[in-house]
């Protein structure tokens, strides 16, 4: 816009730069605190310039939080949720949009309703189901009077327990459905005329067209599942083998409870380790992340 507003321009720059500093200062403080030794970090006021102990703190935190194992776990969980979500919601949206059967609207609404209740508000019963995932079927069998004993399938302390309940929401399906509806009918007709069946059409026409949507969904899902906290906290009791990265934050909080010294530098180093992957993903894949955010929440 060609407009001469020097004072307002100056004010705009000042406001934006101030906000930028204010918004990023918590991250900066985490970084600075992670780079000082125990005494410096507990000074009041703390220095605002990084010290030289970053790597030693990082490796101490890495050791303490068992991060060799938990980073791997978080990667498996986030990767599993991302891949599971992308594939399952793609095929279910395909079924709802491209097949003509009576139940499809019922299915659509059944999936749609799951948008309403996030995992956190139905956490107690979901936990009970995770303790034996076949119990719903067992109860149904009991109810209709068939006495078949299904084996118990305990999902606690397992990757499937960490992953499956996080996939059971509608976000992805909805995104794909909206996109499939915009794909022109002529493409389908052309593919059918050329003799392509539904599977071939799905893999060779529809999926290549959905690439951008898949990238956006994948970015969001990775960050979202990496950042899950309450669910892993409940499902995992075997902390040695199945703890995820975010759970470890609870262990490094310096509390007055155990008479421990407040090792904030180690805590902040651990925080840095945990927040690095999602922050890197959002920075590197920023385009997809923003796109995914705006699309999935509509």
């Amino acid at each position: 816009m060609i407009e001469r507003t020097p004072i307002l321009d100056f004010a705009t720059h000042a406001l934006l730069i101030f906000s930028l500093v204010a918004l990023l200062i918590p991250l900066w403080i985490v970084f600075v605190a992670a780079s000082h030794d125990f005494h410096t970090v507990n000074q009041v006021p703390m220095p605002l310039w990084p010290g030289g102990h970053l790597f030693e703190n990082l490796s101490a935190a890495w050791e303490r939080g068992n991060f060799d194992r938990v980073m791997l776990n978080s990667l498996i969980v986030a990767g599993g949720v991302t891949i599971g979500k992308i594939s399952i919601s793609a095929i279910s949206a395909f079924s709802i949009v491209y097949f003509n059967y009576r139940l499809r609207m019922v299915f659509f609404w059944l999936i749609f309703i799951t948008l309403m209740l996030p995992l956190e508000v139905r956490i107690v019963p979901t936990y009970a189901v995770a303790a034996d995932a076949l119990r719903p079927f067992q109860s149904m069998l009991d109810f209709v009077g068939i006495s078949v004993n299904l084996p118990e399938w305990n999902l606690l302390n397992s990757y499937s327990g960490l992953i499956l309940p996080l996939i059971a929401t509608a976000t992805g399906t909805f995104l794909y459905r909206q996109f499939f509806l915009t794909v022109p009918d002529e493409l389908t007709e052309a593919a059918k005329m050329d003799g392509a069946g539904p599977v071939r059409f799905f893999f060779e026409v529809l999926l290549p067209l959905s690439r951008t949507n898949m990238a956006a969904l994948a970015t969001i899902m990775f960050v979202w599942s990496w950042n899950q906290y309450l669910w892993p906290l409940l499902v995992v009791t075997d902390h040695q083998n199945y703890a995820t990265a975010t759970m470890q934050l609870q262990k490094v909080v310096p509390g007055p409870l155990f008479g421990e010294p407040p090792v904030w530098n180690i805590a902040m180093a651990a925080n840095l380790i945990v927040l690095a992957p999602p922050v890197l993903v959002t920075i590197l894949l920023q385009r997809w992340f923003v796109r995914g955010l705006i699309q999935t929440d509509k």
Binding site: S95, F99, V129
Partner: peptide, 28 residues
Amino acid sequence: ATFSNLWLAAAFIAPQMLLIFVFFYWPS
């Protein structure tokens, strides 16, 4: 333009329905 292979449609929707039944509708 739609497809009419019902078995395929059912197979495609089944995983999602199973998941939301076990982890959403049953717990709720």
